[in-house]
């Protein structure tokens, strides 16, 4: 499971710095939204990780809770992936533009 999670600290810190820089300007809307989305997906994965660990350690929380957390993480990741694909598509479309 740990491999599947988007690495815990580097992305957050890097994006956080970037976020701090852009926030001073007026063009913070999109990067903020993207940053928050990635962060949310990352949180979901960490929650799923914790749930699985709990199940394996025999602590509280049932197997179904872990499965639901996993599915939530999966769905949020796929949603992020779709958004990412759309962005790349738009970018490539712009790059193909004749000048």
């Amino acid at each position: 499971m740990n491999n599947m999670a988007i690495s815990n600290t580097p992305i957050v810190s890097a994006a956080g710095q970037k976020d701090g820089q852009t926030r001073t300007g007026s063009t913070s809307g999109f990067s903020d939204a993207l940053f928050n989305a990635v962060n949310e997906v990352n949180n979901q994965h960490q929650t799923a990780d914790k749930a699985i660990l709990n199940v394996q350690a025999g602590n509280t929380g049932g197997l179904h809770e872990a499965m639901i957390a996993l599915e939530k993480a999966d769905i949020s990741f796929r949603t992020m992936l779709t958004v990412r694909n759309k962005i790349i598509e738009a970018y490539q479309e712009i790059m193909r533009m004749q000048v």
């Binding site: 049932g62 179904h64 809770e65 939530k72």
Partner: peptide
């Protein structure tokens, strides 16, 4: 809402388990 739906599913599963 997706999360609501999943939450309700989870509560149902927990109830039946109990």
């Amino acid at each position: 809402d997706l999360t609501t739906s999943l939450k309700i599913c989870g509560s149902g599963l927990a109830a039946q388990r109990a």
